[in-house]
Design a protein around this nucleic acid. Structure first.
Lengths: 195, 195, 195, 195
DNA sequence: AATGAATGAGGTTTCATTCAT
DNA sequence: CATGAATGAAACCTCATTCAT
């Protein structure tokens, strides 16, 4: 389906995100989405052939929003390390403040849907749409890191960011610019090329 | 009920883990669990008042298994850094090889169930049962780390480990002792006290 | 939902009454109602959120039918005593011939559901919808009775009517216009004002 | 089964009555009865072959209690009218104060179980165990009443009593010796022989 | 006599999906 | 395009009953 961004579709997406945040993936029936989005249930089926397809389309939508967000402060005048820090911080703040998106991501990645996306990406070749991975690869090419596999770098980087965001969201610690910097320092110190 | 580990309960737990791994949380009906565990559906309800309670009890069971696993190679003759590395590696291998457990954890933590556990732990006070957190606190007391909040250290440590395990499991990289060591090196380098 | 009397809802009501008469309240599963009313089980749940709500809505429906029936022969040209007798006879014949209604009423009043209705009426104030009670109150105002509490009059009137109807229905006696008149005579003689 | 009144059986009966009062007939599972009576569920099945048989046995037990109660103040020195009033009052107070019994009776009579009892009584001939009915028949033989069928008299008498008891129990009126006398006056006035 | 773990048929309810308007 | 009444497979759960101890 070629998603035209009508208001209705936008409402459906927003409502779905909102309800999934509160009630979880399978606690959100189509009927409830329809009611919350103020459209008829048939209307959802007019745009999306099934609930699965709705979820998948929503995932693509959310991923685009995420990428737009994490690179928003990056510009050509920053050196790589500055960009590396900026992206990390944006990544964290996105997951902390855009809870509807991050809840959706978390549930999505840990569900059978994820398998579908993985197979799709496998066909598209490595890192097709994945702007973030390309950013890491550039760091490798420009020799900013120790000789580490890009996926190891990602593990440390994304793992730490998500783990931190969860810690803040669950109220175990308050958000603090200083601690966020501590954390990205840990990663940068651990992977940066000391040559 | 005071959960005595009868064979039946054990079967129910094992079957639930197995089915959740393949079909996801809500793709695993009670009827299927009963069939796979070779008990009547009423038997499950004899021990657990609802599916939710089964999931919650299973979580406690899995957490105990995890803690038993990650400290299995730790002994008093190792220094703290060795223990730190041992626990990390055990944590990773657990999540890589005990897929039934790790799939369950991932789904659990990213679901409304998690909220229930969090509220329970909130009442029990900080780190009640959490052997791992106590291990990190010991590292702080023994001055092995930079002055960082224990939760920041955890974010980096656990985040990286889980992220690595996922990368291996999803076939993006093969498991390699060397890369695992690279990763824990990143964390250790990032947090260790250089005094 | 604002109950519009669609054919489907009417079918559901009629089928429920019919089945409850034969099989009792809890011997009438929703599946059977659906089959008998020739609708899908989901259709019932489309109109009524639960079996309990169906029962409650059915009660309101039946009560309206009852009131319509017992006043059907009453008109302005009859004096109060004639109306009193007419209502009593209609009340008896309704309970004798409309067995589906009276079986439902009996089960309803002697079940936990009754408590729900009672609390609802308590909020609505005295005799809100109760056309029959208003008829008795008129008799008091017009001085037809001894100085008795209206509820005592009701106890005698309704108690006798229902008890008679049961006696007929259970075959212990045949319906007879004469005996019915004997019975209402007992009540009228007992309560009428002899001034 | 020859019911020996062991403590256990008594507990089972009492618990069943208590639970039926609060939760209704079908809201009282055997498991709950067992728990409340502090016996094993198997023990109930040791004494009663099924839930139905338990209910039926309980009915016989309750009926005996009722008859014992309503004639408790009757003695040979009272004339018939006095006995008639005494039984009526006892009948009312039983239904008002022994709520567990009366709730059970009401549910029982308005359920498919009643049919079983009716067929049993049909075989035993008219009024086999029915001490109350025999009391009314005596009134007829002794010429205290107008020429009315005994069942009509019963309708008026029992109907009024139960209806009054319900009115009190449901809090619509407070119990009052005077109003109770008013009510039995209505009945007596209505049926007594004026010759 | 007494126990209670175990059973599974059958109940209530949910919800993705269809289709006539 | 948009609607929402209608569907029914399949989910969760209950509970009367059995039987080995």
């Amino acid at each position: 389906m070629n998603v035209q961004f009508t208001d209705k579709i936008d409402n459906i997406f927003k409502s779905t995100l909102h309800l999934i945040k509160d009630n979880g993936f399978h606690g959100t029936p189509m009927s409830q989405i329809a009611k919350h989005a103020d459209v008829a249930i048939g209307t959802i089926y007019h745009y999306f052939p099934s609930k699965d397809e709705l979820i998948l389309a929503l995932f693509e939508y959310c991923r685009k929003e995420l990428y737009a967000h994490i690179f928003q402060h990056v510009n050509q005048e920053m050196d790589y390390k500055e960009q590396f820090y900026s992206v990390f911080k944006s990544f964290c703040t996105f997951h902390i403040h855009q809870r509807e998106y991050s809840c959706f991501f978390e549930q999505f990645y840990n569900s059978p849907y994820n398998e579908i996306i993985r197979q799709k990406e496998f066909l598209e070749g490595p890192y097709g749409q994945n702007t973030f991975m390309k950013f890491i690869l550039r760091g490798i090419q420009e020799n900013h890191f120790k000789p580490l596999d890009e996926k190891i770098i990602c593990s440390a980087y994304i793992g730490a960011a998500i783990s931190y965001a969860k810690t803040v969201v669950y109220g175990k610690i308050d958000f603090s610019e200083k601690e966020l910097t501590d954390l990205i320092d840990i990663i940068w110190t651990g992977i940066k090329n000391n040559d």
